[in-house]
Amino acid sequence: MKKKSLSRSNKKYYFSTKDLVTMAIISSLGGVLSTYVGYLGNLINRFFGVPFGAGQFMSGLHMFWIIFAIGLLNKKGAGTFVGILKGFVEFLSGGKLGLFVILLSGIQGLIADLSFLPFKKDSTTGYVIAGGLSTAANVFIFQLFFAPYEALPLFVTISVIALISGVIFAGLFPKGVVELFKTKPEEGDKKINLKKGITIGIIVIFALGATSYYLTMPLGREGIDISGNVENSYVYYPSNFRDQEITVNAELIGDYTHIEAKDYSGVPLKYILEKSNPIGDKITIIAKDLYQVNFSIEEIYENHEIIIKEDYGSFNLVAKGYEGGYWIRDIVSIEVD
């Protein structure tokens, strides 16, 4: 072995060995106790007589470890690190969410890290906001991937429960515990002001409640924005056009995909456009992934068989007679030029 050629790493590591060991041990303990937190959650579910949901009262305890690590180490990135590592521990010890938990807790850790950024290290507000936000995020992420809370009122209720749980169990609780275990020399007794903490908590809950309500509005009702050079910009909702639905039989011929002729039901794009009284003569249809295609108003008006079909809240264009590239998916807006 050519030992002399080895470069001794002189640079100071960002995370010292002690930091790494601390994060590893906290993740391990957090992973092990996630079963216990689940057990407490089940007790609540049973108490309220529901199969799941009320357990969100305890969901802040899953985030406790991430916030605790951030508070103890006071280094950026500690939250994400512990989030991912704790996810790995839960995944490998057979957690009920499988692989998904790594993603979930990693994102939660990142959110916690980011929420802490604007605050001083000992700021109670920082703990409360990071704890509340990152805990509530679990409901959002879950909804995004598995859509268990399909109804808006249910979704909002669960999110608020998670938020409250986060403020208490992932905000105030770790703040107190960090103070208990900080090995740094004591600087007088800086007790957390519980009243102040709760006041901040309530304000945060209201603020976030309002924002999340606004943000999740489209969740229950998806629509397409119709705007640009029109007299009347509006949002298209299929429920307002139910009686204008037609069925067309079309065949898709793409470069790589081919789908035999079959029936599609939807609302002709013509009617949708007409309602906005377009002034321009060209339209651009834009998808969620920013893919876009252009048509002239004229061709749309002449062709009744270009329809917009709704699939589980997303909108797809069935462009009969056009090649595959025009059959655009996940439409979010239509702009008129």
């Binding site: 590591y13 995370f15 060995t17 790494l20 060991v21 994060m23 590893a24 041990i25 993740s27 391990s28 303990l29 992973g31 092990v32 106790l33 216990y36 690190f81 590592l85 704790k86 790995f88 521990v89 490998l92 010890s93």
Partner: peptide, 21 residues
């Protein structure tokens, strides 16, 4: 490897913490 070992250490302590809980 310094990061990789955090996974090893975390897994190493899983049985310990189960017992302690």
């Amino acid at each position: 490897y310094r990061y990789g070992f955090t996974l090893v250490v975390a897994l190493r302590f899983v049985p310990t913490f189960q017992f302690e809980t």
